[in-house]
Each structure stands twice: as C-alpha cells, then as structure tokens.
Amino acid sequence: MPSFNSIIVENIIESIDVGIMVISPDGKIVFLNSAACEILNLEIEKHLGFGWGELFITDATSNAEFNQVILDVITEQKAGLKHVVPYTIKDRKCPKKLSITSSYLTEDDKIIGLVFLFEDITEIYNAAQREKKALSRNAELQKERIEGLDSLSQAVAHQVLNPTTVIGGMANLISRKLPQEDPLQLELKIISEEAMKLEGLVAAVKAYSNIPKPYPSEINTVELFNNARESANLILERTGEKIEMKLDCTVETITVGKRLFQAAIVELLLNASNFTPEKTTDVTVTVKRIEHTILIKIIDHGIGIEPHVINHVLDPFFSTKAKGVGMGLARVKKIVFEHQGKLDIESPGSGKGTTVTIELPCHDAECCSINNNH
C-alpha cells in the first residue's frame, strides 16, 4: 500500500500541466506523467520502459533539435539549461514549440536518473512572433510616413519660400519709396513682419525635414550632458537666463550620434527654460540602464502642461507660445526615433513641472547582461 506522502506527490505530479519524463542512466524511460504524454503524444502503457532513442530517433531529421537536447544531457551531462525547440507530431501540420528544462535525480551523490520538464509554449511563442511582426511593420510604416512627410515638407517649403521672399522684399521696397508719414507704411510693415514669420516657418520645416541620419559612436554620457547644458546656457545668456542641471548618471557611455543627440538634449533644456518663470531653471537629469534599455529622464519644475494640451506637444507646428513655430519638440522626437528610441512627455498638470523620458536601446547586449546580473 503506497504511503500518504507518495500519494500526495503522485497527485501533485499528475495535476500539473508541465510534462515530466525521467530517463535512467542507460537511456530507458522510467517515468512519464499525463502532461508529458499529452505534450509529446505518447502513451504511458506503450512507451514506459522504452529506450528514448528508439522512441524518438526515427530518422536523421525528425525532431533533430529536440533529440540533440536530450542526447547532450545524457552523454555530456548538460543539465540545468533551458531550451526552446520545435517538436513535430505525426499527422500534425505545424510543429509545436517546447520549452525543455533538465536536471539530475540523485541518491547518495549518485545519478540515478535524468529529469526532463516539458512545457508547450506554442501559443505564447506564436503570440510573441505575431507581436514582433506587428511592431516591425509599425516601425516600417512610421519610417515610410516620416520619409514621405520629409519629401512633402521639402517640396512645400521650396514652393512657399520663393513667393514669401518676394512678398517681403516688395513690401520693403515699396516702404522705402513712400514717405515715412504715408498711412500705407503701417500696412507694409505688417506685410513685411508676416512674411518674415513665414520665412521662419519655412526654415523650421526645412530644418526638420533635413535632420540627417545619425552615425552612432560611443560617447561619455556625463560629458555629453554637460556639453549640452553649456550650449543651452550660451543661448540663454542673451536674455540673462541660465540652467542649473543636477545629473544622476550610472551609465558611463551611450552609443549615439554625438552632435545630433546633443542638439536634442539642448532643445529639451531650452524648452524647460522657456516654461520656467524664474531666470534660473533647475533641471534634474537621470541616466540609468534597465535591462537592455538606456533610460533618460529630464525633469523640470516649471509651469507644467495642461492635460488637454499634453497629447499634442510633440505634433509639428503645435506651440503654446505666441511667436513659437512649434517644431522644437517635433525635431527631438524625430532625432530620438532615428536612434531607434522612444520619447514620452508627462506632466501632473499646471504648475507641477514636466518629465521628458527617452528610451534608447543598449547596443552592447553582453554588457547589459553583465550589469543586470550584479
């Protein structure tokens, strides 16, 4: 009569949906649970006691990866590893995807069996592949959209610039020919100013569409952000403003196009200054690695962004400033996209500051893995 403990173990093993197969040191299958039979299309009565080789190795090509995993464990003792392999069942059109984990069954420090755990991850694997394809296609569509928008922007900018230049030039020419006290001088001044605004808009559109492809190289992270702060402060000197930056960086280097990415950081710092009432803008910047992603956060304590506005701040030509063209953040978004990254802007609301988050892929996967293990 089986013991109470053995009954508990047997019931637990039979109730789980992970397949369990135990192979003796001489290659015989000595244990199978119901889940293993279902996953591998076996029957306990027919296959228990069989040599695994005569059961699974029917020819040179069938389930070769699956057989190699088991063979490596038996002959080379490569236990403790996890493998994902295809597994074909007779009369089934598409192979399954199995996750196989192996370990040893020991007694008195002697190996008495090899334990294999099987999980059918076909649906999970297929869903992940579908998601990967969808993300890849979305990236392609976004790239096509940006390239199409660039071409359109350049064409429109060219067509608008010529007549705008003529309008502004003619208004100035007529103004010089008329007496200063002539009533038309006011109207001509308005025409000239509006023409200059259009020229500025055209220049911003051309700059956006002409953003070059980055040529990434390994850059010292602290140096990059300090240079960006200095560049922003040189621009702000004219208005007596400046940026104080607190940098918390745990990533020694990042791989980016130096000038292009630094220009994006400068734009974000200037944007923080524009929406901070004080002459000195306090900005906190954090740079850290999370798994295979470099996470950059730029946090200001300015006037913040209203909820009804925040969904539009990255759109081209959107600006809450009276004289703004609205291309600054759009340029930053495009630069980040060219680095295969993501840009996000958050704000709790008016008067509560703004947080800009940039996610960049870590180009050194091995380095990322080492750092994540410590």
Rank of each mutant, 00 (worst) to 15 (best):
I8W: 13
S15R: 10
G27P: 02
A35D: 07
L40Q: 02
L42A: 11
E43G: 12
L48F: 03
G53R: 14
I57C: 15
F66E: 12
I74K: 01
T75M: 08
A79R: 06
G80C: 07
T88N: 09
P95R: 14
L98A: 05
S99G: 00
S99V: 02
T101M: 14
S102N: 09
S102E: 10
Y104K: 13
Y104T: 14
E107G: 11
E107S: 13
D108T: 09
D108S: 14
T122S: 09
Y125R: 07
Q129D: 07
R130G: 07
L141Y: 01
R145A: 15
I146Q: 12
L149R: 10
Q154R: 15
V156A: 10
V160C: 10
R176L: 04
Q180F: 11
E181A: 11
D182H: 15
L184C: 07
L186Q: 15
E194Q: 14
E194F: 09
G200A: 09
A203R: 12
N210H: 11
K213V: 08
P214W: 05
S217R: 14
N220Q: 01
T221W: 00
V222A: 08
L224G: 08
R229K: 14
L236M: 01
E241W: 07
K242C: 10
D248G: 02
C249H: 04
F275I: 05
P277R: 04
T280N: 05
T281D: 04
T286P: 00
I298R: 00
D300Q: 05
E306A: 06
P307F: 06
I310R: 01
F317Q: 12
V325R: 07
L329Q: 03
F337D: 10
D344G: 03
G349T: 01
I358G: 02
P361I: 03
D364H: 07
C368L: 04
C368K: 09
S369P: 01
